[in-house]
Design a protein around this nucleic acid. Structure first.
Lengths: 342, 342
DNA sequence: CCATTTTGTGGGAACGCTCCCACAATTGGT
DNA sequence: ACCAATTGTGGGAGCGTTCCCACAAAATGG
């Protein structure tokens, strides 16, 4: 292993102290211009790279924020991460990303990694399994800012970034009703997730507003394991009185549904209309295009990171568990309205 | 800021030295079982979290591998990252992810972040702009293992993980020829990327093998900026003798082409067939399905990480710049053969 | 021109850990 | 019972920084 260039090497060569080198490098004002120049020049020549490990240890902050997401398969989380990363790097923060693979154990393990790496803050979106929040409470207890996004819970008092899931779901359902649908099914997410519950509520309230019966047979909650989506859609379609529309908890689920429906040769949207949630990549590719509730994915990441950085710079006692609700938008495509634009 | 629990706290409370606590915590064999128990118990009680910053500084290794990818938008890189992460975490490594946004500047900046964080190794896929490799040579010079994947270059001698781009492109083109196509266009990537050159070669050699003329008008190299793809496809289609098939450098490009072709109402694959490269998410959703060269995306990440970890454990002098070539597979869908399965 | 402030520099503790060296305590073989 | 090997523990240097304190040199002001 080759010797790493340190500030001491620079100090020795210039016959000055390491304190001065450190000051020159960090832009401390009390350094003679000539000295600063010399240090910077030599640092460049020697390929000096500041050792963040040492800096972080010394300053007990890592200038790193952690992000824990449940999965990486759908395009949603990567894009959120991009947004968060943009904001973080503007403020000189790097980002440590972990994915929990939708399991509680991995999420807890990831939380420990964050703690061990002394991140200055954490952005978390829960797995579908997470029901215990002790590992998250730990962050707060250790005065490490935490912001939840997308898959949030209300069991701990921290800032959250969500979209208006209730309204989005309401609008999606209302849209289906207004196109004349009477038996609207809902393939919901796990009720352990707040986000799933809200979407279900929006769906139900829309039905209520238009005096449509809420048939329990038409609502299925599933664990978001895409492999199973098909099965549940089948179950819905095979009922004695099949639905004439389907509102799915997210786009990947809706796309699975659309594929199955196409295989069966049902006409879309006449015999059955489909609406998703999120406007993922792929939703505009399929034919007919998937009507969906578009959410500002990248913006979710940006706002979450902003909220987090605000906290890192202030005392823990001033933290307020604000919930930032971003707007969604109904995007009408062919899966709900014949010949709708893309 | 609350006081962080350290091994010294534990040592004091148990009336032993910090050395012993350290040994108990790290599983050193020379610790009495009773002592180990006591330490572990107390550590649990106090919510002790080992400080990786200190550990890394002390041991001058971070147990972290860095990954630099050009973008996050297509599903390709997130999936590669998943694969790499799997392998890394099996060996107790965490992963630091940076994306370069397809710009050379960001790539260089990211390389510095990696260096500053003293990663034990780096996985890199180049941006479309990268023509200077000084920032990468730096890793080798500092004896930090580096593995290139997907977007590789041969200007520096390091291990690489690629797929058989030449063969894949050859097979794609041959497939089009065998379905009777005569004027096959190729929308290529930037020739600065080795991967693009190889795919172009494969395309050309296939034409040659079947004695088809290589018409320069039918080959366009572009910078992979998807926003421009449409324009180039238009250009190809608007020629006096338009092509009867298109082989695109990657799936997102092919999908853009497919969309434009559909808009124009040309019949696919009769009037024009399309083949992509990669089998991204979305390629099976579009109609007709996109014929493509499937690559083992997740496996690319796994193999790259394995190659990297092999290096981290051995002396720099023994490193061999092996190139691991993974296999691709021609996936025939409706965009090249009428009614082909999905 | 001397007292006072400002500017530039050096010395060294601290951050929390690992790991080498020294040494005490225990064990084992004869 | 005695010396050697083994086991368990403590002490302290070192990792590469930052940052506080001390202090010399230069600038400022009446």
């Amino acid at each position: 292993m080759k010797h790493q260039v340190t500030i001491i090497d620079i100090a020795r060569q210039l016959n000055i102290s390491k304190s001065t080198v450190s000051r020159a490098l960090t832009g401390h004002p009390r350094v003679k211009e000539a000295t600063r120049r010399a240090v910077l020049d030599l640092a460049g020549q020697l390929d000096y790279q500041r050792n963040m490990l040492a800096i972080n240890l010394s300053s007990s902050r890592s200038k790193t924020i952690g992000i824990i997401v449940p999965e990486f398969v759908t395009s949603f989380f990567p894009i959120v991460i991009m947004g968060a990363q943009e904001v973080a790097s503007e403020s000189g923060y790097t980002v440590l990303i972990c994915q929990s693979n939708e399991t509680y154990e991995a999420e807890v393990a990831n939380a420990k990694v964050m703690l061990a790496n002394r991140v200055d803050g954490v952005l978390v979106s829960l797995t579908r399994e997470t029901k215990n929040f002790e590992h998250l409470a730990m962050f707060t207890r250790k005065a490490i800012p935490l912001v939840l996004f997308n898959r949030v819970c209300y069991d701990i008092e921290v800032p959250k970034v969500v979209v208006n899931d209730y309204e989005g779901a309401f609008n999606a359902t209302e849209h289906l009703i207004l196109t004349g649908k009477k038996r609207i099914a809902h393939l919901a997410g796990p009720q352990s997730l707040y986000i799933s519950r809200k979407r279900l509520e929006g769906y139900k309230d829309a039905l209520r507003k238009y005096n449509l019966p809420a048939d329990d047979e038409l609502v299925i909650s599933y664990d978001l394991d895409l492999g199973k989506a098909r099965m549940y859609v089948k179950h819905l379609l095979d009922q004695p009185q099949p639905p004439d529309a389907l509102f799915a908890v997210n786009d990947p689920t809706a796309l699975e549904a659309l594929l199955l429906i196409k295989e069966r040769g049902l006409s879309i949207p006449d015999q059955i209309a489909v609406v998703g949630f999120s406007n993922d990549y792929g939703s505009s590719l399929i034919e007919p295009g998937l009507t969906t509730i578009a959410q500002p994915t990248r913006e979710i990441g940006r706002v979450a990171a902003q909220l987090l950085l605000e906290q890192t710079n202030t005392d823990a006692s001033t933290w307020k568990p604000v919930t930032r609700v971003l707007k969604t938008e109904l995007l009408i495509r062919g899966s709900s309205v014949q010949g709708a634009s893309k």
